[in-house]
Structure formats: structure tokens, C-alpha cells
């Protein structure tokens, strides 16, 4: 168990969730960026506690090493996350150009009063 990673993941998820629930494009974007990182850290926590272990480069097969699989999965996830983040940046840019706003509340006619 790695308590600090678990708590850190929790904090990241909390901050990301709060941000994506906002209306500002910038905050939503930051929220999703953090969310991707947070999910990666969940995977990282699954490789177990690294104390006293070496990285997954096999130079001395007898030494204890961390589990390489979560790291490989994270790498894949980071790349996918990067692609999606780039798309999101472009989408927000396009929304801004089309709708002349940086606020999601402006996109949809929203009767704010009766909510």
C-alpha cells in the first residue's frame, strides 16, 4: 500500500472534478489535463511500493525491480491523453472562434435564474 500516492490521487481527482464542473473553458481544460494525470497515477500506484527496488531496466536480474507493466500502460495512456488533450485544445479554440465566448454557460441558452 502506498498511502501518499493514494491520497495524492484523491486530491488530483478532486481538483480535476471540481475544475471540469466549472464553466470557464480554461478551467475545464485544466481539469481534464489533471484528470488524465490522476488516472495515470492510479495505474502507477498499482506497481506497488518502489522502496528498495530498482527501475525496470534489467541489468542485474537478481535485484528486486518494480513491476514494469503499469509503467508501460501509463506510457500508452500518456500518449493517448496527449492526443485527446490536443484535440480538446483545438475544440475549445474552435468554440471560442465560433461562439465568441470562453464560457460554457454561454453556449447553451441557460435560464440561470430557475436553477
Amino acid at each position: 500500500m502506498s498511502l501518499e500516492t493514494a491520497v495524492l490521487v484523491g486530491v488530483m481527482f478532486s481538483v480535476a472534478t471540481y475544475l471540469v464542473l466549472q464553466r470557464s473553458f480554461v478551467r475545464i481544460l485544466f481539469g481534464f489535463l489533471i484528470l488524465t494525470n490522476a488516472a495515470n497515477l492510479v495505474l502507477l500506484a498499482m506497481s506497488g511500493r518502489p522502496d528498495g527496488k530498482r527501475g525496470p531496466v534489467v541489468l542485474d536480474p537478481s535485484a528486486p525491480m518494480v513491476d514494469p507493466l503499469p509503467q508501460a500502460l501509463i506510457l500508452t495512456a500518456i500518449v493517448i491523453g496527449f492526443g485527446v488533450a490536443a484535440y480538446l485544445v483545438f475544440l475549445l479554440y474552435r468554440l471560442f472562434l465560433d461562439q465568441k465566448t470562453t464560457n460554457a454557460a454561454d453556449l447553451y441558452e441557460e435560464p440561470e435564474s430557475n436553477s
Partner: peptide
């Protein structure tokens, strides 16, 4: 291209 001015409708008011 989107760099140009967006259509009239969106430019005035999205709502």
C-alpha cells in the same frame, strides 16, 4: 478556414 470572421448568426449572439 476558421480564422476569418465567423458567420453573422454566431457573431451577433449565440442565443
Amino acid at each position: 478556414p476558421i480564422e476569418e470572421e465567423p458567420p453573422i448568426r454566431a457573431a451577433t449572439n449565440p442565443s
